[in-house]
Design a protein around this nucleic acid. Structure first.
Lengths: 233, 233
DNA sequence: GACTCACTAGAGTATATACTCTAATAATAC
DNA sequence: GTATTATTAGAGTATATACTCTAGTGAGTC
């Protein structure tokens, strides 16, 4: 494997593990047992490394969110989209964590990310449209569908931050892909009131599969009162 | 005003303006025209400053999210809660931006923030419960209400990041309280399918007041197709 | 064997950052 | 007034960080 690719791979790994802010170019070089000079031969600066990683992420998501125009969507399609999006979030999880800072420092990235977001929002909206066509959810006016899609995006992109900050035990760090995918439960929660009676049972069963297993005080207080929850914490 | 309070105030101001990561203790001291030593006389370190600011934030939100147990909730109450929460987010907007990093470096803060989140989630859930009691929204099973509350929280806490990253023009920075409060539109979108017929009209009218004014491609593609939107970007 | 050229090592640097230390001054108590 | 305490200034420091510079090395070409 080429040094350049090794740098990208190691950077992604370290960024995901420790957060971009805590990973210096010297760390990356040390981790690969190459010299800083070598790293800077392949990349002009740290921003360039991050930008290239973003391009990979973008390509991955764009690939998975390609929506077939020639056939209706199925429940399996929807599951695939959700699984894929959360897989992507997991693989590049450092990215959303320091997003604002990263965009502040790189004009290209800011521009590209904006367009990327818009493509994702359009894709989500298209998916809802086609789910309605397939009779899985009730059709909704454009305006409501757009606002719903945006909420889906907000839930998806913020789910991990929630897990890491509110949900995590004493020490953070321990976050698994399985936990992350409980975000699918949250996304499906948004769909619940729009499900058609024909599909309601099936989607609710699907949703149940992603329900958080342990009774988490933070995630699903369930049948406990506000008071009981306060005491427990 | 005491130097200590001036430090807290200036820190908050600078953090909000430039992001915690871009503000050093030396910047804060310089901004106040005091010496770094003076700053470190009043605070052991930067984390301590942030922690105290968090305590203020926490107190503010807890104050506003106090839910009356002796009377039913009205639409006006709900509006007040939403307005207050977004006001709080605005005043301490640096906080959620660098949340993960901040929690990583301060155990107290991590613990306190977890409890804070749980209190907020409980409050949101209580509000939904009381809105149902008041006949504004249809009552829902505990489990669904908990998941909905969590989605509300995710939308609220991520709305600003969305504005700053996806929505902003070429240069970031320009973000107003008015734009921020369009987040209320997004939160009310979550309630739409649960509204009772008795209140539907009134809540939809309220929601309309927070609708983004300009036709934002990112926020509300409205009647445009996915293709048209892609070309525009 | 001379030459090219992609690639690499490793020491080095300018700057920033969080924080410390000492000495001095202002405020308050007695 | 004197003693004590709270507050402040300002120079200084250890470390980190992003990045540079010079001097190569080794594989292929003619």
């Amino acid at each position: 494997m080429k040094t350049r690719d090794k740098i990208l791979l190691s950077s992604l790994e370290l960024f995901n593990e420790r957060g971009e802010r805590n990973v210096t170019t010297n760390h990356i070089a040390a981790h690969l047992a190459i010299s800083p000079g070598n790293l800077y031969y392949h990349f002009r600066n740290k921003s360039d490394i991050i930008y290239e990683i973003f391009l990979e992420y973008e390509k991955l998501v764009d690939f998975y969110l390609d929506i077939p125009e020639d056939r209706p969507l199925t429940l399996e399609d929807m599951t695939f989209y959700l699984e894929s999006v959360f897989d992507g979030l997991w693989s590049y999880r450092f990215f959303h964590r320091d997003l604002e800072y990263l965009l502040d420092g790189d004009r290209r990235l800011r521009q590209d990310y904006r367009e990327f977001t818009n493509r994702c929002l359009d894709a989500i909206s298209r998916i809802f449209e086609k789910l309605a066509e397939a009779g899985i959810i009730e059709p909704q006016p454009d305006e409501l569908r757009a606002a719903m899609s945006l909420n889906v995006w907000l839930v998806i992109t913020n789910w991990m931050a929630f897990l890491k900050t509110a949900h995590a035990g004493e020490e953070s760090a321990t976050l698994t892909l399985t936990e992350l995918k409980q975000g699918i439960y949250q996304v499906l929660t948004l769909e619940v009131p729009y499900l058609t009676s024909a599909y309601r049972e099936r989607v609710m069963a699907l949703r149940e599969r992603y329900r958080p297993q342990l009774p988490e005080t933070a995630v699903a207080p369930q049948a406990q009162t506000a008071e009981a929850s306060l005491i427990k914490n």
